Simulated scan of single mutants.
Amino acid sequence: MRVAHPTRAFWYERITYRTMDADDVADVARYAATAPAEAIRRIRADVRELAHALPPIERHRALSWVDGGGCVGAIGALHRGEPCGFSLSHRGRWIEWSVRPYLEFRVDGGALIPVLGSTCGPY
Rank of each mutant, 00 (worst) to 15 (best):
M1N: 13
R2N: 12
R2Q: 13
V3P: 00
A4V: 00
H5E: 01
P6Y: 11
T7L: 12
T7R: 14
A9S: 13
F10E: 08
R14W: 02
T16Q: 06
Y17M: 09
T19A: 12
T19F: 11
M20C: 00
M20P: 00
D21L: 00
A22K: 08
A22D: 05
A22H: 11
V25Y: 10
A26I: 02
D27M: 09
A29G: 03
A29K: 09
A29N: 05
A32P: 00
A32V: 15
A32C: 06
A32F: 14
A33R: 04
A33I: 04
A33E: 01
T34N: 13
A35E: 15
P36I: 02
A37G: 08
E38W: 04
A39I: 03
A39D: 03
A39M: 08
I40Q: 06
I40V: 15
I40T: 03
I43F: 06
R44D: 12
R44W: 00
A45Q: 10
A45T: 11
D46S: 15
D46I: 02
D46C: 07
D46L: 12
E49K: 04
L50I: 04
L50G: 05
A51M: 05
H52V: 00
A53P: 00
L54V: 07
L54R: 06
P55M: 13
P56M: 02
P56S: 10
P56I: 06
I57M: 13
I57P: 05
I57Y: 14
I57W: 07
H60N: 12
H60G: 07
A62C: 14
L63K: 05
S64T: 13
S64W: 04
W65S: 10
G68M: 07
G69M: 07
G70I: 10
G70S: 13
A74I: 11
A74H: 08
A74F: 10
I75Y: 06
I75Q: 11
I75P: 04
G76H: 06
G76F: 04
A77N: 08
A77M: 00
L78Y: 11
L78W: 02
H79E: 14
R80P: 05
R80F: 07
R80N: 10
E82G: 03
P83Y: 02
C84H: 00
C84V: 01
C84E: 08
G85D: 01
F86I: 01
L88I: 06
S89K: 15
S89Q: 07
H90L: 03
R91F: 05
R91M: 05
R91Q: 09
R91D: 05
G92N: 03
G92M: 04
G92W: 01
R93N: 06
R93L: 11
R93S: 12
R93M: 15
W94M: 11
W94S: 15
W94Q: 15
W94I: 01
I95Y: 04
I95W: 09
E96G: 13
W97H: 15
W97T: 11
S98D: 14
S98T: 15
V99K: 01
V99M: 10
R100S: 15
R100A: 09
R100Q: 07
Y102D: 05
Y102H: 14
L103A: 14
E104G: 00
F105I: 10
R106L: 01
V107K: 05
G109L: 07
G109Y: 13
A111H: 06
I113N: 08
L116D: 08
G117M: 08
G117Y: 08
G117R: 12
T119W: 13
T119D: 14
C120G: 09
G121I: 03
G121S: 09
P122K: 03
P122W: 03
